[in-house]
């Protein structure tokens, strides 16, 4: 058991939405209490499979309509009677729109629900700034008891979904719908709350999540060509963050760079600094969105415009190392 990385990183042929659909179909078949709640974005994540899921498991898929706050409340009620609801919508419509419901009805009331927020950050692409959350992690990270996971690729998504069926509590799954770079071999397993060291290195540590993991590896490759050896950590659990691993990395490499598809305020970078400021205060540079709104555009354009690139990460590593 555990995870194994692939030898060569390539883009996956299918989107995470396809992985989500097929995995949920299996999990719904295995456990009739597993439910999928949608707020009228069902076809966006289930695609053509929406009808198949509805017909195969008629009491397990419900479209609440365009009412995210109610959807979260309904899920909390369902979970109080033992159901296992997954609520999906675009991530801003969960973390922003249903924020108080996630706090009171879910976290404070001790519900067991899974919040699936799709298209985080630049993944919203042509839906533009209104739909492009760089603040969703920040908006829910201070909710006691809430866990935030950001799957890196399809192998991780499958394993996380399998775990979420039996885990108790409130989980925010921040996931892309589009194809991701394949980092892990199929069948890999992951421990929520434990980061994954996917590249060894001794000069600095790049701590990345989601979309930025592959870019972190590419940045490490660029730096290696220049004689700098960066360790890469996939910190797919943003809360509770793996403070033990972060502290060890800071001690062993002396400099840390974070890379996230999110505002540098309140997300992964902040979480890393919160840990290291008290355990091992080494130089930290945060690559992410510099407190600004999103805009319409293709993902590559947005990443370039917002500074979410391998080159930006590599430059940040050099700055962090220079500050040692």
């Amino acid at each position: 058991m555990g995870y194994q990385t692939v030898e060569k990183i390539v883009m996956e042929s299918a989107g995470l939405s396809e992985t989500y659909f097929h995995t949920m179909m299996r999990l719904m078949g295995e456990n009739p209490d597993v439910m999928e709640l949608e707020a009228d974005l069902g076809v966006c994540i289930l695609g053509g499979g929406y009808k198949e899921m509805e017909e195969t498991y008629p009491g397990q898929l419900f479209n609440c309509g365009i009412q995210e706050a109610n959807m979260v409340g309904v899920a909390c009620g369902l979970s109080a009677v033992g159901k296992v609801p997954f609520c999906h919508t675009f991530s801003p419509f969960l973390a922003r729109r249903a924020n108080d419901q996630i706090f009171i009805s879910a976290c404070y009331a001790g519900a067991n629900i899974r919040l699936v927020g799709s298209d985080p950050g630049v993944m919203a692409a042509f839906n533009g700034g209104t739909h492009m959350p760089f603040e969703d992690v920040a908006a829910v990270r201070a909710f006691p008891g809430l866990t935030i996971v950001e799957p890196t690729d399809s192998a991780m998504l499958v394993n996380l979904l399998e775990q979420l069926v039996t885990l108790k509590g409130v989980y925010y799954l921040r996931m892309a719908r589009k194809p991701m770079a394949k980092i892990y071999q199929d069948g890999s397993t992951f421990t929520i709350g434990k980061g994954c060291v996917i590249r060894e290195g001794s000069d600095a540590t790049i701590v990345a999540s989601g979309l930025m993991v592959a870019d972190a590896v590419e940045a490490a490759d660029m730096l290696a060509a220049q004689g700098l050896h960066a360790r890469v950590v996939d910190m797919f659990t943003i809360k509770p963050i793996d403070g033990e691993l972060l502290t060890a990395c800071a001690r062993e490499t002396g400099a840390v760079v974070t890379a996230e598809n999110h505002n540098v305020i309140g997300g992964l970078g902040s979480a890393v600094c919160e840990v290291l400021s008290s355990t091992c205060p080494v130089p930290v540079e945060r690559v992410g969105v510099q407190d600004r709104f999103g805009e319409v555009g293709p993902i590559d354009y947005l990443k370039e415009t917002l500074g979410l690139t391998p080159a930006a990460i590599a430059e940040a590593v050099k700055r962090a190392v220079a500050r040692k």
Binding site: G59, F62, A69, N70, V72, G73, V74, A75, C76, G77, L78, S79, A80, V81, G82, K83, P85, D100, Q101, F103, I104, S105, Y108, A109, G110
Partner: peptide
């Protein structure tokens, strides 16, 4: 059920009711 931030109870009651019907 836990309540306090007004307006949230009926949604939860809907979920509880639906689970019992299911």
């Amino acid at each position: 059920m836990t309540t306090g931030s007004l307006g949230q109870g009926l949604s939860i009651a809907c979920g509880v009711a639906q689970a019992h019907l299911l």
